[in-house]
Nucleic acid binder design. Sequence first.
DNA 1: ATCTACATGTGAAATGCTTCACAATAGGTG
DNA 2: CACCTATTGTGAAGCATTTCACATGTAGAT
Lengths: 224, 224
Amino acid sequence: MEETPESTPRKRISESTIHRLSLYFRALSLLEKENYETVSSKELAKREKLTPAQVRKDLSFFGSFGTRGLGYPVTELKARVSRILGIDRVWRVALIGIGNIGSALVSYKEFIKQGFHIVKLFDNDQRKIGSNHKGIIVSDIKNLKTELHEDNIEMVVIAVPATVAQYIVDDVVEANIKAILNFAPINLKVPPDVHVRNENMAMELEYLSFAMVNNHMPKGAGKN
Amino acid sequence: MEETPESTPRKRISESTIHRLSLYFRALSLLEKENYETVSSKELAKREKLTPAQVRKDLSFFGSFGTRGLGYPVTELKARVSRILGIDRVWRVALIGIGNIGSALVSYKEFIKQGFHIVKLFDNDQRKIGSNHKGIIVSDIKNLKTELHEDNIEMVVIAVPATVAQYIVDDVVEANIKAILNFAPINLKVPPDVHVRNENMAMELEYLSFAMVNNHMPKGAGKN
DNA sequence: ATCTACATGTGAAATGCTTCACAATAGGTG
DNA sequence: CACCTATTGTGAAGCATTTCACATGTAGAT
Ligand SMILES: NC(=O)c1ccc[n+]([C@@H]2O[C@H](COP(=O)([O-])OP(=O)(O)OC[C@H]3O[C@@H](n4cnc5c(N)ncnc54)[C@H](O)[C@@H]3O)[C@@H](O)[C@H]2O)c1
Ligand SMILES: NC(=O)c1ccc[n+]([C@@H]2O[C@H](COP(=O)([O-])OP(=O)(O)OC[C@H]3O[C@@H](n4cnc5c(N)ncnc54)[C@H](O)[C@@H]3O)[C@@H](O)[C@H]2O)c1
């Protein structure tokens, strides 16, 4: 029953499980650097502030990767988690809006390490079109649809002002893109088969604010 | 029973409810601009892709703000939600690490609108120390503890490389800061009374990747 | 070959969150 | 004033996620 190859799971996987898989991947990358050969659910849990049972249950949705009495083989588990997350390959990503946040994202090395290659940039500002960012020439937003298609882009990052984000996304959807990471603080309307994830930084600050004002205890406070 | 002033709730409020309050705030700000006087839970739900029951239940944790048959008064509800979230005031924020992402955050106007005032910047790069960003002079990280204290900083944003983030945070904690927004992809260790929220962009891309590879239907697909 | 220590994998229980469904009720209308 | 319509506020039901607890299994020691 051990060593099952991971497989597409029968049950629907929850959003929280998927997010935790990202955490496991991160922790495993570090453990690998530290030359650990195996790791227990207990250690993995400790490193990401979770419970051992949670770690085991999450992994069990995809197969049996551990050895009783020993734990999980670090390198192998990392490879498996990366397969599960779909980051054992290159994703061709386009970034739209090369302003403050867009420029920061182009230089972010963590993305490349995980297979997210930003290979295309778009803007509507004449001063930016044609300029070079990390080896990529900024394209004119006018050519969005054709170039997304010609360059086999699979994911798009939206970093334009909220006021124009919906118009841009309408074109992105027409170009048959199915995955969008959105930084504009607005609820984008897309057809049901298009995935949108929102990155909303104000939301996290608001959470902190709420927690302070209501002296909400942080999650996990009182343990140890 | 109507018009209860909002009050610190008896029950523990879930993280998801708090996040949705942020969405309500955003939607209400827009509705106000569009000159709506009242809004129903149905409309509010539609705008943020939630259910009306969810909207009503969330708000009911804090009081009874609506009028049966009519809905909620937009301006008043917005004020109440902002009170609940603790953003009806100014928060003094320090930003540590004025690199790619740090520079983008300094210029982000949405933060100011919600009461988050970045009033202090820190870096350890001699070329950056003393320079001016949006009217703020970058301080030397050496003076972190004393200046955080002298300037009555209440929240800190971490935008330094992951390798040094923990050391910086140790000092931040010693300076008696209780709220941290962290951009470094690492699990920070802090005492149980310190709130940490992580902004992890790779995680959202990984979610998209997972969804594509597993043709996971987006949440809410199949409605309408 | 047996024993010991350890740690997985997983049903079942416990907890938490969302949705349902409807009584309560405000406001408008005749 | 009585009636009608719309929409809230909320227990209770339904569903989802997390935690528990233990049988199962492996490695290593003696
Ligand atoms: N700056 C931040 O720290 C930050 C943080 C979180 C979210 N955001 C959000 O990210 C988005 C961008 O923010 P920013 O601070 O980088 O703004 P910015 O103004 O610096 O950048 C916006 C870029 O989009 C381009 N643009 C505008 N209209 C366009 C169009 N029609 N087609 C193509 N490109 C167009 C502009 O030329 C500019 O380069 C906004 O929605 C903002 O709310 C920003
Ligand atoms: N660039 C992005 O788009 C992006 C996105 C998400 C998360 N992040 C994370 O944000 C952090 C910063 O990323 P970045 O791209 O802005 O990197 P960066 O190298 O551009 O900026 C880091 C800044 O921190 C400063 N710094 C380094 N050591 C310091 C110390 N000991 N004390 C004070 N300041 C110090 C540097 O001088 C620099 O200004 C990293 O942890 C990164 O993983 C970046």
